[in-house]
């Protein structure tokens, strides 16, 4: 689980940041910038928007750090800001469906089709290392993510890409644990259908 070791020094850095220590805030930014950007990019599908939303997220964090009371972890508070900004952006913008990721094409070539069949196969277990090496398959997977509705997309990204547990997802999205469970299940089922449709 990627999120297992992320809270080690956060509370100290947050306290120092609240006291006006700029280097501590910079350390928090440097620590989380790539993960925030990755989640936002997977959600919005556009690199420019992702960079802008990441920047906006941290600006908002800096401006609001004094109001952070520590009722939740800094990690979930940070991602809540990022996801809310991104969801609002996706709702406002129609670019999500026509983003740069789908420009890479949805018709897989022979090798990619075979890899995708392996993923969808029910008689073998996919090798993550092999999957990660296929840029085209990754592009298809990202495209499939964008086919989901935003609430489902957010929950599957936070779980399967960022690696949050259900409680953290519930905290970030401000929803019940049961909702996380059911929404995640539907998102995964939907993703499989999208990928199957790509092979047809």
């Amino acid at each position: 689980m990627r999120a297992a070791s992320i809270n080690i020094d956060d509370s100290v850095l947050v306290q120092q940041s609240q006291a006006g220590d700029t280097p501590s805030m910079e350390r928090l930014i440097l620590k989380y910038q790539h993960r925030i950007y990755n989640v936002i990019l997977k959600m919005c599908g556009n690199t420019d928007d992702a960079a802008e939303l990441t920047q906006e997220t941290f600006v908002k964090v800096i401006e609001s750090i004094e109001k952070f009371k520590g009722r939740s972890s800094f990690y979930t508070w940070l991602f809540r800001i990022a996801v809310n900004l991104t969801l609002n952006h996706c709702q406002r913008s129609a670019r999500t469906a026509t983003c740069s990721l789908d420009a890479e094409g949805t018709d897989p070539d022979g090798e990619t089709s075979q890899l995708l069949r392996d993923v969808l196969s029910d008689d073998r277990v996919a090798d993550p290392a092999v999957l990660a090496q296929s840029h085209e398959l990754c592009a298809l997977a990202k495209q499939a993510l964008l086919e989901l509705e935003e609430p489902q997309r957010a929950v599957v990204i936070l779980r399967d890409i960022e690696g949050m547990d259900y409680a953290q997802i519930a905290d970030v999205l401000n929803i019940e644990l049961g909702t996380v469970r059911s929404r995640l299940s539907r998102a995964r089922s939907h993703l499989r259908e999208v990928l199957e449709n790509m092979l047809k």
């Binding site: 993960r35 990755n38 997977k42 690199t47 993923v119 029910d122 290392a129 995964r188 990928l195």
Partner: peptide, 21 residues
Amino acid sequence: RRLRQLQNCRTLFNSLPAAKA
């Protein structure tokens, strides 16, 4: 089989390369 399908699907998304800011 259904469990294997869902696991493979999750593996695909879990193995997506992380983008850098």
